[in-house]
Simulated scan of single mutants.
Amino acid sequence: MPGLRRFPLPLVGAFFALYVIWGSTYLVIRIGVQYWPPLMLGGIRFIVGGTLMYAFLRWRGVPAPTWPQWKAAGIIGILLLSFGNGAVSMAEHTGVASGVAALAVATVPLFTLLCGYFWGARNTRLEWAGIVLGLIGIAMLNLGSNLQSSPLGAVLLIGAAAAWAFGSVWSKHLPLPQGAMSSAAQMLVGGVVLLIGSALTGEHLESLPPLEGWLAMMYLVVFGSIVAFNAYMYLLKNVRPAAATSYAYVNPAVAVLLGIVFAGERIGIAEALAMAVIISAVVLIGLPQWRRAPERPGVLVPTESRVN
């Protein structure tokens, strides 16, 4: 059927994983940091997930990464996971609501455009308008009571978005391993760096986590790391960066809804207005890139009518 050819099942599943599963991880991280130190939570999560993936792929006969591939994967793993995800965990550990954290990370497409300048990309007027509107949204978000009560959390979240965007753009110019082996290598290196950071900052467990803490860890390993992260890396290789980062439209709404229903979080008027401004900015940024013709045949490039 034409519709199925236009929307291959792997792409549909990958977008679902980014939109829904990644949206839920903000709440699960918020639960997890109640029982695990934030850097330790991320380090264990990615080392376990990366080890399971690496062992499975080697068992299936996938060749081990070469030294240049390990270096490239390590760089991206540190940017996306150690700096990006680690900073989000630390921000939520300071008391930032999961929905507000997701909203701050929604600025990734804004930083993605700015980072593109390192490789000669030039922005349209519409994209510049989106960047300016996004900066206004960030300012409004910081006026809300949630981030005002945690200035460190605000800095960590903006830094996380910038590191994730830079790593996402740079990944397309580095000799990464093929397929899922790239994700496995990135998780292994990123997880090790997080555990080193955990040790250097003196993190330690006061006591063994209860069942809820272990379930949060398992969810992050299986769904947040193995499933969703692989989906993201798959999309980075098969669609434009703007499409791969389009989860920024949906993740804040999913995270806010889950935080309200399951964690009793509340989003103030300032945060709600900031959400509208930031998501509008992301739409403006994404429209020109989603309209462009695909770089190669068979690659899905969503059209304007599917931006939502």
Rank of each mutant, 00 (worst) to 15 (best):
M1P: 05
P2A: 06
R6Q: 06
P8E: 07
P8K: 01
P10Q: 03
G13V: 15
G13M: 13
L18D: 09
L18F: 06
L18R: 12
Y19T: 03
W22R: 03
S24R: 04
T25P: 10
I29W: 10
Q34L: 05
Y35Q: 12
Y35I: 03
P37Y: 05
L39C: 08
M40V: 13
G42C: 11
I44K: 08
F46W: 01
I47D: 01
G49P: 07
G50I: 12
T51F: 00
Y54V: 08
R58S: 00
W59L: 15
G61N: 11
A64W: 00
K71V: 08
A73K: 13
A73C: 04
I75D: 09
G77E: 09
I78P: 15
I78G: 14
L80M: 15
L81K: 14
V96I: 02
V96H: 03
V100H: 00
A102E: 01
A106S: 06
P109N: 06
P109C: 01
L113G: 05
C115P: 02
W119C: 14
W119V: 15
G120V: 11
A121H: 11
R122C: 09
N123V: 10
R125K: 13
E127W: 05
W128G: 06
I131V: 14
G137W: 07
G137N: 07
I138N: 05
I138F: 09
A139S: 11
A139H: 05
G144S: 15
Q148V: 07
L152C: 10
L152G: 13
G153S: 04
A154R: 14
L156D: 14
A162Y: 03
G167F: 10
G167K: 10
S171F: 12
L174Q: 15
P177G: 11
P177C: 06
A180P: 00
A180I: 15
S183F: 00
G191W: 08
V193P: 12
V193W: 04
L194Y: 09
L195G: 01
L195P: 08
S198D: 03
S198G: 00
L200I: 11
L205V: 07
W214E: 13
L220R: 05
S225Y: 12
S225G: 14
A228G: 08
F229D: 10
N230A: 00
N230K: 01
A231D: 04
Y232Q: 13
Y232R: 11
K237I: 05
R240Q: 01
P241F: 07
A242T: 14
A244V: 00
A244T: 07
T245R: 02
P252F: 08
P252D: 10
A253S: 10
V254E: 04
A255V: 00
L257A: 13
G259D: 03
G259C: 11
V261P: 09
F262E: 15
F262A: 07
G264S: 11
E265G: 02
R266L: 11
I269G: 00
I269T: 10
E271T: 09
A272S: 09
V277T: 14
I279Y: 01
A281W: 00
L284Y: 10
W290Q: 00
A293T: 06
P297C: 02
T303I: 04
T303C: 06
S305E: 12
R306S: 14
R306M: 02
N308L: 07
